[in-house]
Design a protein around this nucleic acid. Sequence first.
DNA 1: GCATTATTATACCGGTCGGTACATAATGTC
DNA 2: GACATTATGTACCGACCGGTATAATAATGC
Lengths: 203, 203
Amino acid sequence: MKAGRKRAFVKSDALDKAMRVFWENGYSGTSVSDLTEVLGINKPSLYAAFGNKEQLFATALEHYMSHYGAPLMERLTNPAETPFAERVRAYMLGIIDLINGNDSPKGCLFVKSCCEAGSSAMPENISLSLQEMRQVNALLLTKAVQAEQKRGHLHKTTKPRDIAEYLLSVLYGLSVLARQGKSHRELVRIVDIAIKALPTSQE
Amino acid sequence: MKAGRKRAFVKSDALDKAMRVFWENGYSGTSVSDLTEVLGINKPSLYAAFGNKEQLFATALEHYMSHYGAPLMERLTNPAETPFAERVRAYMLGIIDLINGNDSPKGCLFVKSCCEAGSSAMPENISLSLQEMRQVNALLLTKAVQAEQKRGHLHKTTKPRDIAEYLLSVLYGLSVLARQGKSHRELVRIVDIAIKALPTSQE
DNA sequence: GCATTATTATACCGGTCGGTACATAATGTC
DNA sequence: GACATTATGTACCGACCGGTATAATAATGC
């Protein structure tokens, strides 16, 4: 055991709370005072635990992606015996629950952050890692589409990458709609239309 | 002619410049100093001409929607003799040009603002007018779909409003992708996939 | 010419921003 | 218990925030 006074708060809990503040107000819309107020700690504690505002945001963003976003990706491949369109639907419904939950801010933190990115209002490092995150996400989705094309359940006239980007585009749009208060039901209807566009082999 | 010293800048030019600053950095990412620097005027001139930061943003947003967004809507109905899918495509390609232009910030100011909305970082009035703007946009698109269904060129199993919201969702997604640097060509490919989802009567 | 009116530039307002110095309190090792 | 180590609360830093008071400047109507 290391020496020294014990931290009076649980770091992982604080990180999740901080993530939600950024989720609600965005990077430049969130002040350090906002964070310390919600987390119930003082500034020196926050800076000692998380570095500075930029580093805390980066950590919160990774926490969001790994704990809330990434787990949904499994639905794209499992269970393998269900039709591809159903798996995509399950994935997208998971995203809907995430961006339209009752106990979390509306919309998607990642999408929100992307909109802030690429300007002087957001540090360049963050903008770059957002771009990397998107590429990883798109690649995973592309591979799922590719696997399905090889199985022959999806015809091959459209490049898998384009199909993946199309699906992501719809998802990003859902985040904007969720932010504006659209209901769960309305969002699901959009997903159902979007999935009809998938060029299945029976066409 | 009114008495008094003449304004040393063209108000409409200043408004367009201000719009671009907000477009680049967002509402809370833009400071009044950012604005006066780009506009080349002093703060009292800005406040005299546009009220305050919030009012200037509201004006800039309306300028964006009426001068850049709204004119594209005509492509949805004209020319009436071209197929509906082609008109929708023309509309969406117009949006792509807007959000991926070389002489303007990437992405869509409206989408960016929607992501900032609904939080303490953005005044409530702005959030409300963003919601109204979206409703107007969705209604116009819905009516275009509805007209096409009556003509019989689009089958009626899907509600026109849902189709409209689906198309808007794709467009909002394109804004996020454009912001991340996706090329014109890639965005067009997404639009082409999205349009295939339209339930045309020949199916 | 002269009062009136509007815009300009400078300089400043209180408040908040992100970030930290400092002293104190609590834990471990020896 | 002495001591090193770590976290805490307070109080503060310079810089910038949105916004304005003031006075000089330029245009008008009469």
